[in-house]
Amino acid sequence: METFYSILPELIRIVICAACGAIIVFGNALVMGYAERKLAGHIMLRPGPMEVGFHGILQLVVDGLKLMGKQLVVPAQADKPLFMIAPLLAFAPVFVPLLVLPFSEKIQGFDLDVGLLLILAFASLNVLAILIGGWGSNNKYSLFGAFRSVAQNVAYEIPMLISLLAIVFMTNTFSLRDIAAAQSPVWFVVLQPLAFLIYIVAMVAETNRAPFDLPEAESELTAGFHTEYSGMSFSLFVLGEYANMFIVCSIATVFFLGGSSGIPLPYFEYSGAIWFLAKVYALMFFLVWIRWTYPRTRFDQLMNFCWKYLIPFSLVNLLITVVMVKLI
């Protein structure tokens, strides 16, 4: 049994990583769910949730309990196995990207040299989940929502990847920790402002949020791909969406906003993680802000914007970056 004790630290490390991932996913959903409703309220000049706890701070806990108690309704004509698998497939892959995110120089699950690719690969599974859910519901609204989601995600993945690729050319690595460390004098948002803007737009579209929330456009499609979902299977989609927001904002932080760098705070050993989370939540606040400020785009406007503006601009940006990297 001596061999077992020798790998015990590694096993404990894996368990701790998984537990921290779960804490981030659920904690983030609680914080963002409350913040989103409160911010939406204040943007619309109303107070938002006020009843449960001080200024409605326990509202999300109560909502969570309600959702857990609800019945899971499966439509009679639905494809039952696919209908049940889809929420799990939307929720489960979000844990993998959290393992490779560098929260500070010391706090990171695993430092892989394919970190960025791993995140992108598992983020693409979300689209598959939306497709399966939308098709499995056997509902026309769901199918339309799923359809739009795929067209949108496939299109906006291209400018997203190309804008990130410019940074990869500059740093010569896929490892998120090395990319964050490469920005010690200047953040890449200064060197790559166009790539940052393109990434921000693509990020909003990739997370299916307003003004690009066509897959769940309430005024046209009831609730889009999750029309037929109730109770926990619905909330798994929502948890997945909030976790995806966290992940794309973390990538933006690592690639453009210097990762965990910042002015050292009194609690020195944690200041990196504090700065990282502050930047991530500032970006998430931005996402919530534009969601409740701008009206929804039309679908042809959305696709035209991607194919006619974002992709050409990101390609030109990539070309200029490559030339500059070669020259300098």
């Binding site: 639905a78 394919v114 693409s124």
Partner: peptide, 29 residues
């Protein structure tokens, strides 16, 4: 790990989704 992530990214994330999109135009359950 590189090949594994590329397999998921390209084949599952792109190729399968495009096939599914085509199939969705066809049959219902």
């Amino acid at each position: 790990p590189f090949l594994a992530t590329m397999q998921v990214l390209i084949y599952v994330g792109a190729v399968c989704i495009m096939i599914v999109l085509g199939v969705m135009l066809g049959n219902t359950p």
